[in-house]
Design a protein around this nucleic acid. Structure first.
Lengths: 200, 200
DNA sequence: ATTTATTAAATGAATGTTCAATTAATAGCG
DNA sequence: CGCTATTAATTGAACATTCATTTAATAAAT
């Protein structure tokens, strides 16, 4: 409840975006009005317009921020190390709690729905997946080269991996119980290894 | 542009829901107002309130309708036949165009986002997944019994299958090109067979 | 004659946005 | 240092629209 005021634009804008994110999480994208965001951020509604111009642009800025979270996760995936360890580390990270909780389900799904109508959002999401795909292609090629996996096609294996991980992260909440997360993780890593044809 | 009027409640309500669905698809859940739905359905806004009481209930009715679409797909999955054929048929149906296009991405994702705040929606979605899971458990058990697959745990395999299929249906649009759908389908069936340890 | 479908008109609250006013920090200059 | 001019952050009040919903009236079918 600190009544701090007079922040710089550089500090205020992220604070507003954070408030926006929280409002979406709590009340849904369809109910996240500028007035509510302003209240949550502790500023006047017109300040939001002053900084973002329109609500539309604020949405786009939040989309960017959320996608950046995922881009950072991908950027921190292992690029070096011995084949076996690297593979273990990779799968461990994809099914880590950090990935699972990188962003609110509610927010992400609203943005993915939005991507179907908004070509700006769509293209940004696609760029993200492209980098994920590119990274996995390189790694799977490396694992195949090292002969610790057995696959027919690199791109097919990568498609399988991405689909499994996305489905697993977003839909497991509906078909497993909350306390089964650890079991689920283990199961998914087993499934991933099967898709990759991990030897041994 | 037929100016048909005076439908029975039985006919009008689904017509309104269809219009609602279309408005969500075109303009997004957050912009789907009663006024727009009324215009699309060719009726007065107050008629919508008359039939559904509140917008909230109309949303819930549409959620039900969409979930019923998926429930019907699950209900029509094979329950009999020789093991090999049945497995092929099952995977073919999961990755059929019918499943892929069962409902609009935009609508489904908005509803899944909604499920995070609305316990009514959440419980209905979970019930659907439960029936999907139950069906797959029985089938996978059958395939294992017939020894055409090799798995450690039935529930782990089923979790893998569901995750793969969901991830594949919803996220493939972001990491593959539109014209690659057939290749994608093939790849996913291969991945599914690996998860199941299909022999031969 | 009664029920049912449908509209008309009006409601207050909330929407995103504009523009001018106000306050606080910063920089220039003696 | 201190005074002042300028810039930047923030608010206030008003805007026309749109929102979901209510109540009463009308039209058509039974």
């Amino acid at each position: 409840m600190s009544e701090r005021k007079r922040l710089s634009a550089e500090e205020r804008k992220p604070a507003i975006l954070k408030a926006f994110y929280q409002v979406i999480e709590e009340e849904g994208f369809e109910n996240a009005s500028i007035a509510k965001v302003a209240k949550k951020a502790g500023v006047h509604a017109s300040l939001i317009i002053h900084y973002f111009g329109t609500k539309e642009r604020m949405v786009l800025d939040l989309v960017d921020a959320v996608l950046r979270t995922y881009a950072d996760l991908i950027r921190n995936l292992p690029e070096s190390g011995e084949p076996e360890e690297r593979l273990e580390k990779l799968l461990g990270l994809i099914w880590s709690r950090e990935w699972q909780e990188a962003a609110s389900f509610s927010v992400v799904f609203s943005f993915l729905a939005l991507s179907q109508r908004d070509s700006e959002v769509m293209s940004r999401v696609r760029i993200l997946y492209q980098s994920y795909r590119k990274y996995l292609m390189a790694q799977v090629a490396f694992f195949a080269e090292a002969e610790i996996i057995s696959i027919e096609s690199i791109s097919a294996a990568v498609q399988g991996l991405i689909s499994l991980s996305e489905g697993s992260h977003y839909f497991c909440r509906f078909h497993i119980n909350t306390e089964d997360f650890d079991v689920h993780r283990t199961n998914m890593i087993i499934a991933a290894k099967r898709i990759l044809g991990v030897k041994g």
